[in-house]
Design a protein around this nucleic acid. Sequence first.
DNA 1: ACGGTTCCTGACCGTATGGTCAAATTCACG
DNA 2: CGTGAATTTGACCATACGGTCAGGAACCGT
Lengths: 211, 211
Amino acid sequence: MAAQPRSNSKKERRQESEKLILSAAEKVFSEAGFGGATMQLIADMAGLPKANLHYYFPTKEALYRQVVENIFQFWLQAADVFDQADGPAEGIGAYIDAKMEISRRHPAGSKVWATEVMHRAPVIQDYLETTLMEWTEGRAAIINRWIAEGRMDPVDPDHLLYMLWATTQHYADFGHQIETLNGGKPLDDAQWEAAKASVKRIILKGIGVVE
Amino acid sequence: MAAQPRSNSKKERRQESEKLILSAAEKVFSEAGFGGATMQLIADMAGLPKANLHYYFPTKEALYRQVVENIFQFWLQAADVFDQADGPAEGIGAYIDAKMEISRRHPAGSKVWATEVMHRAPVIQDYLETTLMEWTEGRAAIINRWIAEGRMDPVDPDHLLYMLWATTQHYADFGHQIETLNGGKPLDDAQWEAAKASVKRIILKGIGVVE
DNA sequence: ACGGTTCCTGACCGTATGGTCAAATTCACG
DNA sequence: CGTGAATTTGACCATACGGTCAGGAACCGT
């Protein structure tokens, strides 16, 4: 028992450190943007000396890239609900729920992603062209199948997907604006439920799968 | 003819210089964010020496603030169509058209605004709390009147407005992503029309004012 | 033509930032 | 233990950035 290295193996400790840094970086990048973020700020937030960051991540760009890639993976994974559904009402409804939940739980990641795309994706352009492209085409095919089966209105799948992304991510990216318009208070549980319900109601009715 | 001061009065030339700088600044801020933008870059884009910028705008913050304020004014003004309509189909439809047109013609401004809000509005928080708050409440009142008159479904006006903002601004803020998914080409005229039609169709049907 | 005001700009400055490095510390393992 | 590898960190460096300033150019009313 005494031989046991503290409670973590060396590799585990390394992963923990990286996670700590990545978490702090995500927050700082989301609040200040890539240019406004400083390694010192990230280090302070992580409670580590700045030089330590450079031991784990050689450059600011490398750290940023890792943050963005993690967000992207998280994103894709959360979209599985879309595929497992056997109809538009269930599939799109669950997708909206999932993305709203991400906006609520991980607003920083959403903001980093949004900023990266707005700046013409200098770091993850290859992901847009490959993974995201394929994902989008796959989902569009599913929607087209639902349309062909007469289970929803004939809408352009791309624009529907854009609307889903835009509406759900808005609650993260523009959360501060929403909070301000809500009297300076973040949305509470009931308000989040109302938001989800509103979004689902309008979109699902708008594409002809409810009422 | 020779006595004529070039073709501009002194005041006109001043305004022209300011406009040139503001235009360059909007583009640079939108592409690099506040932190990533440099006065040198803006000066180069405007074709002026850096010191000249500081003659017209004392600090980077002052220049940025002016950019954001201009965008906000532009925004509000374009929303007049909402008020002049006498029903939800016309009012909301025209609002969508107007905002889509802004996203198409002034994507840089939209991006600057989005970034500013995502960073918790350090510069224009007061506008959010006063002007935007009042504007939103006014529009919500109109929507509630339409609902009371039975001219549309009873939806939460705030969430409807968020959806309108999110969906229309998405075409500016995430224009690069859309362009990439569109095979690397910007949307052409027909595609923009299709986008507008899709958005209007889904939302207007979703709130029960068409079909 | 002149005097004053506005406008323009190259050269310069202090600071903050990303990144480096070598010395110190901790760790894994025979 | 002892030894080499991995980790940590304070001190340091080069650069780039926002901002200043003084001197000159252009302009305008008289």
